[in-house]
């Protein structure tokens, strides 16, 4: 069964279309990265997935349930968790534990089960030691991990990160990305990673590039990064390692296109030894 299906979806906030005739299918357990410049419609895409917004045209199915129907809304939101951009705007309680309990309370779980869910969620994001800490004392990365835990307490099958790392420092970004990767690989959760950091997209099975509400490129991350000239026209910059590859090639060192540091190091070594011979 597919986790998310968009069929010819269009959406506008009143003016021009933020999403234009978009079709997209995300399989269960897939890790997909959605790349795009500011205003490309990628956040709108996230909000359409769990009924925060309703499409003007076309339809959206989440595990074969139509998002447009009011009575499906609760089930869909239980299955699709979204972590938003600002770590300060997602917690409802002052204490970590109480905040994580919020979602579990909303879906009417019994007290003991909520306790178990909190244990599980805190462990999944590696924040067990902060169970009774005040949210306001945590770092940005930690707050965002608590936000992920808050969503995990609902045990959603799909996890959407709407630029969840954009406001974090490099360390916080890495922490969050490691957790998300693990949730996908170890627990089999479908992950939709919305970002404008190209490096993060490397971890995905598939990458989709959006521009002006449309999908303009699609493929594995390395496929996409090879089409760097096209990427630049969509205002997206290559990851640092891609730039290095490119610069080496132009400078006369014929390395193969790669986004793996080790592999690039090997390629350079091979090229150099060949030149020396």
């Amino acid at each position: 069964m597919n986790a998310i299906e968009f069929h010819n979806v269009s959406f506008s906030y009143g003016g021009s279309f933020a999403i234009r005739n978009l079709s997209l299918t995300v399989g269960e357990g897939e890790f997909i990265a959605v790349l795009g410049h500011n205003g490309s419609g990628k956040s709108t895409l996230a909000r359409l997935c769990n009924g925060l917004l309703e499409p003007d045209e076309g339809w959206i199915d989440i595990f074969s349930l139509s998002v447009g129907k009011r009575r499906n809304l609760f089930t869909i939101r239980k299955n699709v968790g979204i972590v938003f951009q600002n770590p300060d705007n997602q917690a409802v309680a002052s204490i970590v534990e109480d905040d994580i309990a919020f979602g579990a309370e909303n879906i009417g779980l019994a007290r003991e089960e909520i306790g178990r869910r909190i244990d599980f969620a805190l462990k999944a994001v590696g924040m067990e030691a902060y169970r009774h800490a005040a949210c306001s004392r945590l770092s940005g990365g930690q707050k965002q991990r608590v936000a992920i835990a808050g969503v995990l307490a609902l045990d959603p099958k799909v996890l959407i990160l709407d630029e969840a790392t954009a406001m974090l420092d490099p360390r916080g970004r890495r922490e969050v990305m490691d957790i998300v990767t693990r949730l996908n690989r170890e627990q089999g959760r479908t992950v939709v990673l919305i970002t404008h950091f190209m490096e993060e997209a490397l971890r995905a099975d598939r990458a989709v590039v959006m521009n002006r509400g449309e999908i303009v490129m699609q493929g594995t991350p390395s496929d996409i990064f090879e089409r760097h000239e096209e990427l630049i026209t969509y205002n997206l910059a290559l990851p640092r390692i891609g730039c290095i590859c490119e610069a080496l090639k132009q400078g006369g060192l014929p390395v193969g296109a790669t986004l793996d540091e080790e592999k690039l190091a090997e390629e350079i070594a091979q090229c150099l030894s060949r030149q020396n011979d």
Binding site: R70, L73, G81, Q90, N106, G108
Partner: peptide, 22 residues
């Protein structure tokens, strides 16, 4: 939006579970 995403339905209860307390 974050609360909605975490299944908070407020007073709108059609299809929603009864809220419990931890």
């Amino acid at each position: 939006d974050a609360m909605d995403s975490r299944c908070y339905m407020g007073t709108y209860t059609a299809g929603a579970a009864k809220r419990t307390k931890y």
